[in-house]
Every structure is written in structure tokens, then in C-alpha cells.
Write a protein that binds this DNA or RNA. Structure first.
Length: 424
RNA sequence: GGACGGGUGGCAGAGCGGUUGAAUGCACCGGUCUUGAAAACCGGCAGACGUGAAAGCGUCUCGUGGGUUCAAAUCCCACCCCGUCCGCCA
């Protein structure tokens, strides 16, 4: 969420920003409502002031002279409370608009939609050139008995799966690999709740309920299953006021991630690529405003380091404005080469890192204080995928496959898996 | 799940219907003193919103939401959270 005052004072800027992001928001309506809100505030303040003076005078007056003053006080309070409920309606309506306004946008982010992302970097591993027709991960994994989609369907429906045998070892190895690396990089590692209050989801920029939601919510409660540990890691510092010297703070969280993927049917849904549940190791950072650009680069570098270390070819794209989502100020995606996708291989998103500036921090109330200065400022929050297990498995299987259908184990994972090749 | 106790400023902790947005201590900031530091002393120190060029002024906020009252941190109700004990349990 942006600052309401800032929006009200910069209607043109906000309107243009909504345009390049493809967000249809009635900014003008917001401005009108905010003027009304301020006018009502003025009236309410005046009435409260008068009522307060009456109340104070009552205590100083003999009891038999109090009745007329009480009546006057009652009248003023009633009038104020009428205006207050009108103002509450105005605030609710304008807040609804305000919440739907996306974050500001980094000036260097490319304009346009999904296809307009610009490639900014390549990984060190080159795209494999197989002397045979590569299989996709579903075929490889079924042969090697790494997962079981049929059992997943029976238990929980389409989009759920069991990891089995070496598939389990792959998941554990990837987690351990990522966690070890991030601990060395100064991250505080944690496993997080897989559920969170709706208010925390909303603060992070997710919409837990409603027709468009991608979130599973738990009935008879205000809890939802998390779509990413970004939600819990950000929420962990709800209402926190940091001292400046505690920043930047780098957290790493492991959680399960649950996504309904409503409306995503038929779109590259085969196998592990798009599923309703997966495990993810997530990075999260809280920084002072002047640190967030550098931290964003740092998170990107770490994502690259992780995938370079796994020997997976990838490219990095700078996401275009229309594809950023609400909270992100700027976003980079790592797209791994997936030889089994499409006709002859395609790039597929494996990680994503966003600088959300103060968009999430404002709603979550996460601030910092400088000892030498009065007041507080909102921190900047950033997130980045370390490893989304299911997609990493897709990339590993398809890039490390061999002519006989076996799959080499990336060197970085051999010690955790205990073998160098996955075979039948 | 049951029974108590509690949630007040950055922290600790008073206040329990009427100039209390809130005593006091610690921390922090500025100053005096000092060669410097410490100590001592003096002063400052919550946030949001509104208004104003600014100084300032006003309103709201004592876990959250409702209620009682002319007036609530203080009384009532619900919920959330934190302790302690009991029960249950991986």
C-alpha cells in the first residue's frame, strides 16, 4: 500500500504509474473521497473540541447546575458520531481504492507485458546439446520413480503429488544445499508456519479471500495456507520498530507453499511445473530505504550463485511493468532452461526476486528508528526465491538426463543424495 | 480444552471515572562542568491524522472491537495475545 497522502498529492504520477502497470484504478475517485475525508475530519475535530470543553467544565460546576451542560455535551457527541460514521464509510471506500493501487515502479524497469521482459544476464552453464531427443521431467521422473501423481490425485486431487524414493532425497538435498549456502551468507534460517492470518497475507499484498484468490483459506477461521514464506517472514516483523543498526536483516525461511492456481488450467500444467503444493526456501530482507537497491542485486546474485552451483543453465530477466504484480517496485526472474518443455525446450521461471520498497512495510507496520532523529520510517522489504523445490527438480532432471534415461546428480548435491546417478 | 493472572510510551513500571497523552526509573538526544571521558546538574524525548509558509494549534490513540457515561487507561461485553497451573497429546 502506498501512503494515502502521497497518492492524494500526486494524482497524475499515480495515474501514469497505474497505466504502465496495466492496473485499472479510479485514482480520481480516490482523490475526491480523500478531500471529503479531510473536510469531515475538520468538522469532527471541531465538534470534539467543543464537547471536550463542556465535559471539563462539568466537573467544576456545582451538581445542581450540571444538567443543561450534560444535554449540550450529549448533543455535540451525537453530532460528532454521525459525522464519524460517515467518514468511516468514506475511508473504507477510499481505502479499497488505495489498496488496489500498485507500488511505484523502478525507472529502469522495461515497459510492457510478459513478453517485454529484458534479458540482463546468463548463467555460467550453457544450454545442453543432447545427442538424443531429451525427455521431459514427467517421463524421467516416472521411470525413475521419483514422484507419484496418481496417488496425489487420489488423496488431494489434480495438482498434488507424492515425492518418492530419490525424489525425496532430491528435495532434502536441495533444501540443505540452499540453507547451508545462505547461512554462510549471513541469513538467519528458520522454518515458518504454513498458515497465516488473513491480515498478514493482506499486509504482504496477497488477497486471501474472494473470487480471484490464489490462496487456500481455512473455513471458520481467519487463517489461510501460505503461498510462500515471504508472507510469514514479512509477517514475523509485524509492527516491529528496528533500530537502524539492526538493518539490513536477512532471513531465510523454509515453508510449504499452497496455490490454487485458479484460471491457470491448460497452461504448461504438466507435471511438477505448476502444482498446488511445493516446498520452497525463501530469502527475505528488511533494509533502510537507501540499502534496498543494493540488497536487490545481492539477492539476485545469490539466486545466480545457487543455480550456477547446481550447474543449471538460466537467464535473468528484468520483469516488465505490466507483469510486476502489486507490491513489487522491481523484479528479476531466473528462468532455467528446461529441455523437455515445449517443442525443443523453453525457459521456465525458477526463481523471482522483488524489491517491494515500503509497500509491504506500510501495511505491516514495520519501521526503523535512527537514534539521532525523531520519529520512524518504514523499512524496505525484499524477497527472493532461493530454491523452489519442484521447479528446481524439473530443471535438474531435464538438464542432467542421459541417453539411457538415467539422471546425473549435480555435484553440489552428491554428498546429500549419496550417489552420482539416479537410475532405475 | 479448563482455572486464574496480565497486556500502558524505546524498555521497565505507576495510575483504576473528571485539566492524565499519562508519575517515576532506565535508555536516548542537547547543554553546563571537564584537557577528555565518567559522574553530577539543567533541558528535551510517542505516534497517526487534520490545519498552517512556519512556529504552532486541534483531534484521535493506554492489546483489538463494541457498549455504558456529559466525561473511560480507569466500569461492562466479545475477541486476540502473553504468563502460571491443570487436563490432553505428537
Amino acid at each position: 500500500m502506498l501512503d494515502r497522502r502521497f497518492v492524494a498529492d500526486n494524482i497524475d504520477l499515480i495515474t501514469e504509474n497505474c497505466r504502465i502497470r496495466g492496473a485499472s484504478v479510479d485514482v480520481t475517485k480516490f482523490a475526491e473521497l480523500d478531500i471529503l475525508r479531510r473536510q469531515l475530519q475538520l468538522d469532527i475535530d471541531r465538534l470534539n473540541q467543543e464537547a471536550g470543553q463542556v465535559s471539563k467544565s462539568i466537573g467544576k460546576v456545582p451538581p445542581d447546575e450540571r444538567e443543561p451542560l450534560k444535554a449540550e455535551g450529549r448533543r455535540l457527541r451525537e453530532e460528532a458520531s454521525k459525522l464519524q460514521s460517515r467518514q468511516a464509510e468514506v475511508i473504507e471506500e477510499s481505502d479499497r481504492i488505495l489498496r488496489s493501487i500498485p507500488n511505484l515502479t523502478h525507472p529502469d524497469a522495461p515497459h510492457g507485458g510478459e513478453a517485454d521482459a529484458t534479458e540482463v544476464r546468463r548463467g555460467v552453464s550453457s544450454v545442453p546439446d543432447f545427442p538424443f531427443t531429451p525427455k521431459d521431467h514427467v517421463e524421467l521422473g516416472e521411470t525413475l520413480k521419483l514422484f507419484d501423481f496418481e496417488a496425489g490425485s487420489r488423496v488431494a486431487g489434480h495438482g498434488f503429488y507424492f515425492l518418492t524414493n530419490d525424489g525425496v532425497l532430491l528435495e532434502l538435498a536441495l533444501q540443505k544445499y540452499a540453507v547451508d549456502l545462505l547461512m554462510q551468507e549471513g541469513f538467519t534460517v528458520m522454518t515458518t508456519p504454513d498458515v497465516a492470518r488473513d491480515s498478514i497475507l493482506e499486509g504482504t499484498g496477497f488477497m486471501p479471500r474472494g473470487p480471484e484468490t490464489q490462496i487456500y483459506s481455512i473455513s471458520n477461521s481467519d487463517l489461510s495456507l501460505v503461498a510462500t514464506a515471504e508472507i510469514t517472514l514479512g509477517g514475523a516483523m509485524h509492527e516491529k520498530i528496528f533500530n537502524i543498526n539492526e538493518l539490513p536483516l536477512k532471513l531465510c525461511g523454509i515453508s510449504h507453499c499452497f496455490r490454487t492456481e485458479a484460471g491457470a488450467h491448460g497452461r504448461a500444467t504438466r507435471g511438477l511445473y505448476r502444482v498446488h503444493q511445493f516446498t520452497k526456501v525463501e530469502m527475505f530482507a528488511f533494509t533502510a530505504p537507501d540499502q534496498s537497491d543494493a540488497m536487490h542485486q545481492q539477492l539476485l546474485d545469490l539466486e545466480c550463485k545457487i543455480f550456477d552451483g547446481l550447474g543449471i543453465p538460466y537467464r535473468v530477466v528484468d520483469t516488465a511493468t505490466g507483469d510486476l504484480g502489486g507490491p513489487a517496485y522491481r523484479k528479476y526472474d531466473l528462468e532455467a532452461w528446461m529441455p523437455g518443455r515445449g517443442e525443443a525446450g523453453e525457459w521456465g521461471e525458477v526463481t523471482s526476486t522483488s524489491n517491494c520498497t515500503e509497500y509491504q512495510a506500510r501495511r505491516l507496520g514495520i519501521r526503523f528508528r535512527k537514534p539521532s532523529e525523531k520519529g520512524t520510517q518504514f523499512v524496505h522489504t525484499l524477497n527472493g526465491t532461493a530454491v523452489a523445490i519442484s521447479r528446481a527438480i524439473v530443471a535438474i532432471l531435464e538438464n542432467y538426463q542421459q541417453a539411457d534415461g538415467s539422471v546425473k546428480v549435480p555435484d553440489a548435491l552428491v554428498s546429500w543424495i549419496g550417489k552420482t546417478v539416479l537410475t532405475v
